[in-house]
Design a binder for these strands. Structure first.
Lengths: 248, 248
DNA sequence: ATAAATCTCTGTACGTTGTACAGTTCAATG
DNA sequence: CATTGAACTGTACAACGTACAGAGATTTAT
């Protein structure tokens, strides 16, 4: 049986990879398995990550996958941590907290663009992995130089990342789902018949927002709108000043 | 075969419920089916909403459920719309946009407390239903009296609801998932061994936030923190003034 | 050298899921 | 009274995660 999830997550930093293990050596490393699983997820969404499909990619039988991973849920956590660890963060340099928060948001959007399947994954155990923790540490440093206490710093980062994730979910097209515009065109006629002249505000605003949604600039506009709100909201927070961090 | 999803969603407002249909009358109304499905979801999470379990509640065979609903995915959309329609919104009265936005957020939190399964549902077709559209209309009115244009009004509401949903997901305990504290206690020892003295910021802040997370007041504090950020962020928006709405 | 231990990998099989398909029964309509 | 169409049912299939019992390989203990 494979090691517990925590040890698999930290397999590279493992203290004792010495003494060769007994039995035949594995045909694939854990990282291989996780990498191929991520490939599947990128191509076909998280639903495409099946034990059987992964086994085929590895040229193993389905059950042999369980030699490397305890369960599909564990595999998803390993994938998420590896994706988090693979980020190439924009360095903060000597910037203010505003531009640093912006970079955190942008980097996360880039991550979710590359790995849309992360949007469909919500396992708290991801927080146990080295990639995720390193990401957490790095992003917390965006608030260096401010006088936020620890709990507020965590809350502020959470606030930024929640926005990022929610907005990314609207921007990024997941490979398995169809375009929203199809649904819109297909339903707008019948919907209008039911709505008639009711709820004029919803109809007017919905139409305006719906039409803009198709446009090429809208995704970026929605992103900018929200990010500006996030920054303004944080700026109002006691403990945030516009000074670059000195030494923390 | 049942009617298409759009017609099922608007079944109550349907124009022609006249002329009795042929064949035996249905043992259950669509609303019955959806209501029982919601019961299942409230009790056991969205994963407990299986065709077979629902059939049992209805005293039907599994396949008979498809007389009322075209697919499980359609059923989930019907459930979401019914839940949205069942909200008892706090009236806005003569308040400022700030308190109205607060009410929108609070009402949505209440909704998600009552129906945590909504957090695990993300189907754009929900937007086609009368309950969802009525909710949208009502919540858009929170910005009456401001000079936001239509697109910004939609974006502002989206911003509020995204925050609400993300924070609710952290506050509300879904019936099927275990408590986070269990995971924490179970892993903290091994994790500390791997971490050593690395990433001190993440360790310190994570510990502070993690300890607070258990406490009884933390959920509300996180909610208040975020909501205050949301309101401050929106206040910074051109077009928002603190005047109560006059006539819109 | 031999035996024991323990690893990788496999084949079979089970339970659960959504649902396609071919009916059967029943009430309203021609 | 025959026809039509709706409600309902039984059987069946494909896909899923994975439990379990073993086969073979390789290191360690004797």
């Amino acid at each position: 049986m494979p090691e517990p999830l925590l040890d698999l997550l930290w397999r590279d930093r493992a203290a004792a990879p010495v003494s060769r293990r007994r039995g035949p050596k594995a045909r694939h490393s854990t990282t291989d398995v996780v990498t191929l699983a991520i490939d599947l997820a990128v191509e076909g969404g998280i639903g495409a990550v099946t034990i059987r499909a992964l086994a085929q990619k590895l040229e193993l039988t389905p059950m042999s996958v369980y030699t490397h991973v305890n369960s599909r849920d564990d595999l998803l956590v390993l994938m998420a941590d590896q994706a988090h660890g693979s980020m190439t963060p924009t360095p903060f340099g000597r910037s203010t907290w505003r531009t640093r928060v912006r970079r955190v948001a942008d980097d996360n959007l880039a991550l979710l663009r590359e790995h849309p399947w992360l949007l469909d994954l919500d396992d708290p155990r991801t927080a146990l992995g080295p990639g995720t923790i390193a990401k957490y540490d790095r992003e917390l440093h965006a608030f260096d130089g401010t006088s936020l206490d620890d709990v507020s710093r965590d809350a502020a980062l959470t606030f930024v990342l929640d926005f990022t994730r929610a907005t990314a979910a609207r921007i990024v097209v997941r490979p398995e789902t169809g375009e929203f515009s199809e649904l819109w065109e297909q339903s707008v006629a019948g919907l209008a018949a039911y709505l008639g002249d009711d709820l004029p505000l919803a109809q007017r605003v919905g139409r305006a927002a719906g039409e803009a949604m198709g446009g090429p600039y809208d995704a970026e506009r929605a992103w900018e709108f929200g990010l500006a709100r996030v920054l303004a909201g944080l700026a109002d927070l006691a403990g945030l000043r516009d000074a670059p961090p000195a030494a923390e």
